[in-house]
Write a protein that binds this DNA or RNA. Structure first.
Length: 901
DNA sequence: ACCGCCGGGTGCC
DNA sequence: ACCGCCGGGTGCC
């Protein structure tokens, strides 16, 4: 599976290689000052200095130990003070005064990052040597050298570390791509779920459960640590600590979607439910089912529906059927009964299957708060209802489990109440909203376990969500993701930080020990990374095999491309637009301003792609592209209009700050689109100097232009009255009609990136009497759940067709009722297409899945496909190593290839 | 004796 | 610190 983020995976990435991530990232890559913590850079050289004040340090310093240098501008004795800290940040000593002046200067002016390695360890009680190396951007080299020599220090050139074998970029890329593959250790056993789980686990789920329990209870030393005498020694940083380093209690469950991560996690929570004690039969309540699970189960102690206002969960829960069968006492009470389980007998897990004893192992971790018992599940809103459904489905009806949905304005913020639950479910948004306020309840509770569902959501450490997640207080930590990060090493850090994989949860150690070595092709760096990932991750794909047998058997899936010929009239219109676009773009190419005018370029490309689908997609705003704007204000206005056009089609844009789909989009005066909260944060933190993350143009809060999300609608009648078909519409309709005549039980997904195209398609579908539903990004959570349920239902008269916008709803939606997929327009990002297809090609699919891609012959669509193919062959473009100017060139080349210039 | 020299006290920043 | 530095004690050899 791929997990890259694209600049509008639905439409606007010009690249499709694992290297150049997105257009926005590529452009961002040209201005490295954007990286607040640049993790790359060149080595300027190193010099020997001395560390004083060692007498105040009680620890040991080893030969070769890595230390970090911390500026202390507030130091009362010297405002230039530079502290030397060990791997955990504890003070080892200080840089001697004269040298500190120099370092302070370099560090405060951001001329270089300074790293320390202790060459001999401690030789006496008072001082020791340290080798300082200076890393930074090439253009700062002179300034750094000048600083150093002017203070009569001497910079030794060249790398100080030993040379290790380096990989070629291809080897590196392959190794990195495989980071998350084959992580299944055959040695892990199987573990049965406790009886409270009423769904029998599949073998691979039992393995996952066994592995997860082992991860939570294993008291062995974490990787890279060894016992050395009285101390614990880290083999990577060469540091020793007195206190036993704790193993991560948790990990990353990165199974492909559809393999049952939710079920396995539920089984984990119930099995090893508290303090190492599984949920036993004592937990199966004496309360009659009827008392537990009627409507009241949806209410909080004040008697209000806990999920009344927005929740998509509500749609499934307020449904009487599911409420009746819901066996969970959601937020029932805070009365003492809930404590019973603490005294419950250890039971259920069949002896012999599990290689460890949960109780003993867990209790050996002495610093845990024994009172912690609640598991906090954080997920995107779109899958909240899935958790509730799954609990409903998989937990035995007579088990009394306190599950609280922490969502909505009426949510109960009482921390004692929350702590007393068995499970609390919430969303990333609620978490970060709480976090930004004062005294966040979720951050006050001492959790037993925190589970991040769709954990790749927090791959960017700069977002509020990520910061909020890192601050949670919990003993055990899990990340569930079906799309582990593949292409960007930096994304991995966030996962490592959440898991508190010491010392890599601190950026500097991650950068020095893992990220920089790996990106520079260092073999040991890569080995270390592989080991690191391997010891915390379990990943199986749909094609994984256990003992030669497939994990799960899925029906076949085949793709066929159907070429569409334009009619004479369509061809003429298309060619006109194409010629116009070429003129404009070739001018930009000649001027070398393609990237500066990219809003314009995007608009031209999207227009051509719309022509390929249906002329009705173009909207009325588009007039001409050839006219040269006179004033800068006019130019800006025009660019803004174009972006409105682009966004208005329903295409998905990526915010360059959070790397997610834009929410609450705003447009800067330089015509770049961001989430309002994201860009507001940039402006707040950079104040007057705030610059556009994409083009480095000045930005001001007052100049942000709102983007109106919905405007159209009225024109559906307009479309109907002046109805005109298109070649692509006809191609689809004839396929659908043929299919219906052959087998009217087959259901289809009709997928487009352009929501308006979906609207257009409704007309002929209605005309031909097809029953269909529609799912797109503008729909409320509640409505989505309804639509999915309707489509999945096998009741007579349920819809045969679902109109689906490419990225609607994100991952995790189950559309297994469909076995045909029609991809109406090519996406820049094949991963987005794959994900879309995966919604029906998943567990539960009974038929072979046939995917049809419509491509207009002799059009930009063909070129898109061609470029994608070419890129897949260009393996040597390994991640992150390409320099920005090369990237820019290839980007421009792609645009030229698309326009045949 | 407004110096040099000796030796004890002292010590990160 | 088996140093350097400071400041008090001391004073031909």
């Amino acid at each position: 599976m791929q997990s890259r983020r694209w600049f509008g995976g639905a439409g606007f990435s010009f690249a499709d290689d694992p290297v150049t991530e997105t257009l926005s990232q590529a452009i961002r890559g040209t201005g490295e000052e954007l990286d607040r913590e640049p993790d790359t850079g060149v080595l300027f050289g190193s010099l020997r200095g001395s560390v004083v004040g060692l007498r105040y340090y009680t620890g040991v310093v080893n030969k070769g130990e890595m230390v970090s240098l911390v500026r202390q501008p507030q130091n009362p004795y010297d405002r230039n003070a530079v502290m030397v800290a060990n791997v955990y940040g504890s003070q080892v000593g200080h840089i001697k005064r004269e040298l500190a002046v120099l370092l302070a200067n370099i560090m405060d002016n951001n001329l270089a990052r300074v790293e320390g390695v202790v060459p001999f360890g401690v030789t006496n009680q008072f001082t020791m040597s340290v080798v300082l190396s200076f890393w930074g951007r090439e253009e700062n080299r002179d300034a750094v050298v000048r600083q150093i020599t002017s203070r009569s220090f001497k910079l030794q050139s060249g790398p100080t570390g030993t040379h290790t074998h380096t990989h070629t970029l291809t080897q590196l890329k392959n190794a990195f791509d495989n980071l998350f593959e084959n992580l299944m250790d055959d040695k892990i056993g199987e573990r049965e779920a406790v009886e409270a789980v009423c769904t029998p686990l599949l073998p691979h789920q039992k393995q996952a459960l066994s592995w997860m329990c082992a991860c939570e209870n294993n008291a062995a030393l974490p990787h890279f640590w060894e016992v050395k005498g009285e101390l614990f020694y880290n083999t990577l940083t060469h540091s020793s600590v007195r206190e036993r380093p704790r193993r991560v209690r948790g990990g990353i469950l990165a199974d492909d979607m559809g393999l049952g991560k939710t079920l396995t996690t539920i089984a984990l929570i119930l099995s090893n439910f508290h303090h190492g004690k599984p949920l036993s039969s004592a937990w199966i309540s004496e309360c009659p089912v009827s008392e537990l699970c009627l409507y009241m189960s949806l209410k909080n102690p004040e008697g209000k529906c806990v999920c009344s206002d927005i929740s998509g969960a509500c749609s499934s829960l307020t449904n009487v059927d599911s409420a009746l069968s819901l066996s969970l006492s959601l937020a029932l009470s805070r009365s003492g009964k809930s404590g019973d389980g603490d005294q419950a007998e250890v039971s259920v897990a069949p002896a012999g299957h599990s290689p460890f004893s949960p109780v003993e192992a867990a209790s050996s971790q002495s610093t845990d708060d024994p009172a912690a018992r609640a598991t906090l599940i954080i997920c995107p809103l779109s899958v909240l209802s899935n958790w509730l459904d799954q609990l409903d489905q998989h937990v035995r009806a007579d088990v009394k489990l306190n599950v609280y949905l922490y969502y909505g304005s009426e949510r109960n913020r009482d921390t004692h109440f929350l702590s007393s639950q068995h499970m609390v479910l919430t969303t990333y948004n609620v978490l970060s909203a709480d976090y930004s306020g004062s005294a966040s309840p979720l951050h006050t509770v001492r959790w037993l376990r925190v589970v991040l569902d769709e954990g790749h959501i927090i791959r960017n450490p700069n977002t509020q969500q990520s910061k909020a997640v890192l601050k949670l207080n919990t003993q055990r930590r899990w990340i569930l993701t079906g799309t582990p990060i593949q292409n960007n090493l930096r994304d991995l850090w966030m996962l490592v930080a959440f898991l508190r994989l010491k010392p890599f949860d601190v950026r500097e150690w991650w950068n020095r020990v893992i990220q920089r070595p790996v990106t520079q092709g260092d073999k040991t760096g890569l080995q270390n990374l592989q080991a690191l990932v391997k010891c915390v991750t379990l990943r199986r794909t749909k094609t994984s095999r256990v003992c030669g047998r497939p994990l799960v058997s899925l029906p076949e899936r085949s793709v066929r491309i159907e070429e569409v010929e334009l009619t004479q009239k369509e061809r003429e219109e298309y060619e006109l637009a194409r010629t116009e676009g070429r003129t404009t773009i070739s001018r930009y190419v000649a001027e070398g301003t393609v990237l500066r005018n990219y809003a314009d370029v995007l608009a031209i490309l999207v227009r051509l792609r719309q022509f390929c689908c249906h002329p009705g997609l173009l909207g009325k705003t588009t007039t001409h592209t050839g006219v040269v704007a006179v004033t800068p204000a006019e130019l800006r206005e025009r660019l803004i209009m174009k972006l409105r056009l682009v966004l208005g089609t329903g295409s998905d844009e990526e915010c360059a700050v959070c790397l997610d789909s834009v929410r609450l989009p705003v447009i800067t005066h330089c015509a770049h689109v961001y989430c309002r909260p994201c860009i507001a944060e940039v402006i707040r933190s950079e104040q007057e100097q705030a610059r556009c993350p994409l083009c480095r143009g000045q930005i001001k809060a007052s100049e942000l232009v709102e983007f109106p999300l919905e405007e159209e609608e009225e024109e559906e009648s307009n479309l109907l009255e002046n109805w005109r078909s298109s070649s692509k519409v006809e191609a689809l309709m004839s396929s659908l009609l043929r299919l219906r005549s052959e087998d009217d039980s087959i259901r289809s997904l009709v997928v487009s990136q352009f929501t308006r195209f979906l609207t257009i398609l409704e007309i002929p579908l209605r005309e031909e009497g097809f029953k269909f539903v529609r799912l797109d990004g503008t729909m409320s959570q509640k409505r989505r759940a309804q639509v999915i349920q309707e489509f999945q239902s096998d009741a007579p008269g349920s819809p045969l067709i679902m109109l689906l916008s490419l990225k609607a709803g994100g991952v995790g939606i189950n559309l297994s009722a469909a076995s045909r997929v029609f991809l109406m327009d090519p996406a820049w990002n094949p991963a987005a297409e794959d994900q879309c297809v995966d919604r029906c090609h998943r567990l539960g699919q009974k038929r072979d899945v046939v995917i049809t891609k419509f491509i207009v012959k002799g059009s930009v669509e063909e070129n898109m496909v061609k470029i994608q193919r070419q890129k897949q062959d260009l393996v040597e473009k390994a991640f992150g190593t390409k320099n920005p100017s090369e990237r820019k060139t290839s980007r421009v080349d792609e645009i030229r290839a698309l326009m045949e210039l």
